[in-house]
Amino acid sequence: MRLAVQNLSFNYPGHPVLQEVALEAEAGELLSLVGPNGSGKSTCLKCLARVLRPVGGAVYLDGRDVAGLSGRELATRLGYVPQETPQVFPLTVYEAVLLGRRPYLGWSVSAGNRQVVEEVLRLLHLEHLAARTLDQLSGGEKQRVALARALAQEPQLLLLDEPTANLDIRHQLEVLGLLQALVRRRGIIVFLVLHDLNLAARFAEKMLLLHQGRVFAAGSPRQVLSPENIRAVYGVEARLWEDGVGLQVVALCPTEGWLPGPAEAGIGPANGSRGNK
């Protein structure tokens, strides 16, 4: 599997959201998409997943334009998990994950398909919840169910919009570790939107920093996450260092317009070098 995105653009009526986004990924890569609120991360992911039709540009999977794939072809190649999945008429956890097998199913559910579902449930520690309905789950459990559904599609490209947003730190690490393992062992591509720069830097070898709908920087976390880039994109002063775990980012304070006044709080651009958070 090879993912190539060329000149991807998208507008909501009146204002551009994405402009000329380009990226490439090879099998076995885990990429993260970071950027401030409203920078177009979710829109970018939706365009990749064909949930939104881009105004310009194209997404290619193994050289084939995604726009030309049939629904079934798309569903078996690409799994997408939005930030939130509203459930009006909740299914049981088992059925919700089984939906991921829809592209492989006729009317009834064969043993092979059930096996895949049960495997995925086990992988995400959801077995004991299989018979519960989604409305009885916590936010984090729901999020794992959504991920499980996408995994049950057995896609070669996984697009995840903040997969760790509702997870506690342990489940954050578990889910990201699992994704890392999937990337290594099965050679799939995982492309995820993350807010947490530390997690992004630690688990993704490639990073895209989005700013006002454009790719501001791309490359390894070390290349992308510099104090200058963070200041330019987020408007935040940050301190970075590297230890054995990975690149660590601590946001200190907004570069400007911070109401309590940096001086009062004893930190800020002026005396940030004092280095006391």
Binding site: G71, E73, P82, Q153
Partner: peptide, 8 residues
């Protein structure tokens, strides 16, 4: 969105 991703 999920339905669309599942090929619907």
């Amino acid at each position: 969105e999920v339905a669309a991703n599942l090929g619907v």
